[in-house]
Write a protein that binds this DNA or RNA. Structure first.
Lengths: 230, 230
DNA sequence: GAATTCTAAACTGAATACAATTTTGACAAG
DNA sequence: CTTGTCAAAATTGTATTCAGTTTAGAATTC
């Protein structure tokens, strides 16, 4: 029986999830021995996975002091959102000239099929998964795998904040999550019309609007990570 | 006596340089034992460094088969250039609204001081270093460290092709390298005027022009990497 | 009581050893 | 000549071990 997935892969996936969810608190030092026991692997594969995550920006590393969780500051989150604008606007622009009519129609169709679920969803996790899925699909239309790769990385590091943000909005709106699908639709319409200026402008304002909210979300996330801790 | 730089760091730096220069041929399998002897370290730190480079896109990895050099194809290089457009145009845009007059003046000054050297240089390596330095400084003006980080990564993976490209242009022009500093100046002028549209347009056309040349350079690089091999 | 020094414990860094898997090449069958 | 099979060799995967460094806390001094 062939073993398909290596230990390092398994450990890496687990760690990425933990890091994305801030299972490690910002700037917290990571104890390799303890973690290797939890994950059921020795320190060798664990460190290999940790090194990947350092290169991806999920963790940091200091010589002879080991691995640390990435910090969580407003400016750090700001940087990630701005990088998303860069990547996604260019992906949108490329999609305008490069995506086939069929692929654009498929994305519009995806949006339509998702709309009922999106409007009625109250679970922030589900909502975020749908939103990320839309943006990832759009990036696919660019045909550029680097942009897709970078976006995936940025989203992983932003995800926790977005989740906090969505929860905040849900609580404000009384259990109702914000089904803001209109912005997505506007972007797709711009692409369908092959109107790069309109499409990128829509994308830019969409992400920047989210970014505004994120600053407040960072403050909340900060308090959630440091204060309560059951 | 305290040891400042770890073995992993040293190995990582060496490997990054080797990978950037295609010291490993595209898609070539990397033999860990042999490489660890060359680098004077055991396989443990070597593999940690290799994992970082996989996460950065310099190498790939297959389960139970080990590490491989990244492939070299026209579409791959195209993707990298397009990602550069995304990152650098947004960095330019941010610089327009965010950089201080002093910092912009300092970049313009840097351009002026470099010009004589840039115009007279015949060594592609030196020329490329100056060009990369300009783009890195400009990215700094954005104040966004993610954009800087991504750009640094993209440039590392593109560098080899750009070098081939510059050599080709030098040989065509009879030992004279192309001192195309005017495009850089145009970009800085746009930023100084706080004219985001003009500045990003200049940046876009600057990179896209380079991208056009790159396709041909890939063909040459391909032949250099596969055919001669002393 | 605050600051400092020192020592033991904890932790990280890296080599080694061995298990698991893949690759290679010889040999046989079609 | 091509294809398939199999065992040996090479290579990767990971646990273990020990050396080197950092950290924490007790003891000491002012």
């Amino acid at each position: 029986m062939a073993k398909r997935e290596s230990n390092v892969d398994r450990v890496y996936e687990a760690l990425r999830r933990m890091a994305a969810d801030f299972a490690f608190k910002p700037d917290q030092r990571i104890n390799e021995s303890a973690l290797s026991e939890v994950l059921g692997a020795s320190r060798t594969p664990l460190r290999e996975a940790l090194n990947r995550l350092v290169a991806e920006g999920f963790l940091t590393f200091q010589n002879n002091r080991g691995f640390f969780c990435r910090p969580l500051t407003p400016s750090y989150i700001m940087d990630l959102y701005e990088a998303r604008v860069a990547v996604e606007c260019e992906a949108t622009r490329l999609a305008c000239t490069r995506a086939s009519d069929e692929d654009i129609a498929a994305l519009a169709d995806y949006l339509n099929r998702m709309e009922p679920e999106y409007q009625s969803a109250t679970d922030p996790e589900a909502l975020l998964a749908m939103d990320e899925s839309f943006h990832a699909r759009l990036a696919q239309l660019s045909g550029n795998s680097e942009l897709q790769r970078i976006l995936n990385n940025l989203n992983g590091r932003i995800r926790y904040i977005r989740l906090i943000d969505l929860k905040r909005m849900r609580d404000r709106a009384g259990g109702k999550a914000p089904g803001d699908i209109s912005a997505h639709r506007q972007i797709v319409e711009g692409i369908a019309a092959r109107n790069a200026e309109a499409a990128t402008a829509a994308m830019r304002s969409h992400i920047e609007k989210r970014r505004e909210e994120a600053t407040e979300a960072v403050r909340i996330a900060f308090s959630q990570l440091y204060v309560p801790d059951e």
